[in-house]
Structures are given as structure tokens and as C-alpha cells.
Amino acid sequence: MPTETAEEARPATVPVPSAVLPLLAAAVCGAVLPVQSRVNGALSEQLGALPAATMSFGSGLVVLTLLLAITPLRRRTAAVWVALRAGRLRPWQVVGGVGGALLVASQTYAVPLVGVTAFLVAVIGGQSVSALVVDRVGLGPAPAQPLRTTRVLAAGLTVVGVAVAASARPGGDGAAAGAGLLLALALVCAAGALTSVQQALNGVVTTVSRAPVATAWVNFLTGTLTLLLIGLVSSLAGGPAPQALSTGVPWWAWTGGVMGIVFIALAAFAVQHLPVLVFALVTVTTQLVVGVLLDLLDPAARQALGGQLLLGVMLALVGSVWAALARGRRASTPTAATHR
């Protein structure tokens, strides 16, 4: 009979750092979005929504472009354009950054109006519904998946959570103000839906670049160009002019773009070591918890944190976890992380 060596007989254990660090990375990754939302919202109060979103995305692009001085990253980024020219990637597959740009734009517009918590609930609702379509058509690197009743019901539950949270927000000075709040949340839901598309497209690009930072650079480039184009069209159509830069803008209001890069780096590390379900559970939970805490610190947003809004948060959380459970049974490997 073969005998076991001491190495083979040793119980299989997971080193503490390899078990704890991915969980911490996922938790911090989830906390970045609500903090970024508050930061970009503060910047928009000084510059206006669209200029603030453009500054946030543009600063991230500058940082990532500087990182391309590192030769391996530059080669990975060049591989994307080689694949594009060779036809292995189609042009529409490299425009995932449009979704990220519109999400940041919705941050800067909606957070000052509805607060971080309601913003996050709307994002989660849009993502949950859109993920059904993305998986059904096989938009990402994974094969197409049939619609399952459990995932449809879970997505429906998150939509109910969005509706409950939206109706909890006070209407301000009248029906017009209430309609403005509902419009803001509707735009956030649409932007959240596009982030599921962005995630799928980034998964395809990452299979070519094999470097999340290279994929991030492509995202920031297309996202920045999108915001600049929207700004140009708005200007030509007689839209509002950018506000004058105030000297009272706090330094932390300029860190939104860097936070996007931090999100990508942490998510890219975490998804390599955690199952899909665990990553989704940790990030969604920390997003909502940090969002509630940030609104508690804001006297204006604190007024909306009643039982009805918290009920909407719980419904969205349960629906998101339920959807992740149903999806986790079908996905054995995690998808690539994206910028938000």
C-alpha cells in the first residue's frame, strides 16, 4: 500500500491571510460606491452635475494613463486594440465605460436630491433586472443562461424595494418636487441597469487584456469621452453653462475618480478568491450599510431615514442576495470587476 508523506497527511487548511484578505477587499469594495457617491454629490453642488461627473471620470483617466508607464500594463492595454483591429473584439464590446460614466453622472445629479441610501437601492434594482437580460443573451464571456423563476422573483423583489424606498422620500415643496425626485431615481435605475451590461462587456475585454487595470483604462477613456460629448451637445443646445469653480471645494471632493480605480483593483483581487455569492453578499451589504450611515451623518438626508425607507433597503438586500444565490448555482467562476 502507498504511504502518505508528512506533506500529504497534513490537513488541508486555508491560510488566514488568503481567507481574510479577499473578504476585507470585498467589504471595502462595497463601501467605496456610497462614499464615492457622497464625494461626487458634494462636487456637483459646487460645479454642477455634468462637470462634476466629467472631472471625476477624467481624473481617473489621468491616473490610469500615468500607470501605463509600467511596461506590462501598457502591453496589456495595447492587446485590446490589437484584438479590436483583428476582429476578435467588436467595437461595441469596448464601450462598457459608457455605463460607468452614466452611473457617475447619475450620482452627481441624484445623490444631493435623494440621499445615498435611496440612490443605492435604485442602483441595485436596476442591476438586478438588467442582469436577467444580460445573462439570457450571453452578453458576457459566460454562455447564455435561461431565465429561471427564482431569479425573476428575486429581481421583482428588488424592484418592490425601489418603489418602497422612492415613495418614502418626502416630496419637498409640492408635486413638482416629488416628480423631480422620482425622475432622479428612475434615471439611477436606468444607469444601474447599464452597469450590468458594463460588467459583462468588461468580462469580455478582460479575457483579452488579462489585466483589470488595462480594462479599466479602456473604461475610463470611453466614459470620459461620453461625458465630454454629452457636455458638448448640452452646450450647443443651450444647456446650463458650467458653474464657476469655487475656492471652497474641499480637497476630498476631487477623489471620486481615484475611488473608482480603488474599486476596480479591490474587486479584481476579491473575485479571484471568493465565490460569486459571497462577493455579491458582502459588497451589497456593505454598500447599503455604509449608505445608511452616510445619510445619518447628513441632516438633510437623515429626515428620510424612516421605517419605510429602511424597509425598502431590506427588500432590496434580500432580493439581491436571493438573485445571487440563484445565479451562484449556475456560475462556477466569478465575472470580471467593473468601474462604477
Rank of each mutant, 00 (worst) to 15 (best):
P91D: 01
T247F: 12
L67M: 12
L103P: 03
A110R: 01
L221Y: 00
G174Y: 04
A300I: 14
R136P: 02
I230S: 07
T149G: 15
T54G: 11
A200P: 08
A69K: 08
A184V: 06
W322H: 06
A176L: 13
P250G: 06
A142C: 03
G248D: 15
F119I: 04
Q93A: 08
A323V: 12
V258C: 07
V276C: 06
R169A: 11
L187D: 03
G161K: 02
C189P: 03
V164Q: 04
R327M: 12
P141G: 12
T255W: 05
G87W: 08
T5Y: 10
T13L: 12
R330E: 15
A336F: 07
V116D: 04
V262G: 09
V16S: 09
V16T: 14
T335N: 11
V321W: 14
Q243K: 11
W322R: 05
P250T: 04
V282W: 05
T149R: 15
P212A: 05
V98R: 00
A304M: 14
A253I: 05
V313M: 15
V116R: 09
V32D: 09
T338S: 13
A184D: 05
L181H: 14
W92A: 07
T65R: 00
Q36P: 06
L182Q: 14
G192V: 04
V262E: 06
G138S: 06
D298Q: 08
N40K: 01
R329M: 15
R136C: 10
V133F: 11
V289E: 07
L221T: 05
T158Y: 01
A270L: 01
A101V: 01
R75G: 05
Q107D: 10
T226F: 02
A253K: 02
V39C: 12
N219A: 07
V213P: 01
G260D: 01
M259F: 13
T65M: 09
S18Q: 13
L315H: 05
Q308R: 15
A336I: 04
L181D: 14
F263N: 02
A165C: 12
A211C: 12
N202E: 03
L297P: 10
V94R: 00
T226D: 00
V162C: 01
S44R: 02
G312Q: 10
H339P: 03
V197P: 04
L228S: 06
L102W: 00
A53S: 09
V63D: 07
V35E: 09
V213F: 11
G328H: 03
A131V: 14
A27Q: 13
A179Q: 15
A336W: 03
A175Y: 11
V123A: 04
M314Q: 13
G41K: 07
H339Y: 14
P212C: 09
C29T: 12
L297Y: 13
A241G: 05
A101W: 00
L84Q: 03
L232W: 13
L221F: 02
A301N: 05
L73Q: 01
P2S: 13
S196N: 12
T224G: 00
A301D: 07
A118Y: 00
A26Y: 02
V271K: 00
E45S: 10
L221C: 07
R329V: 09
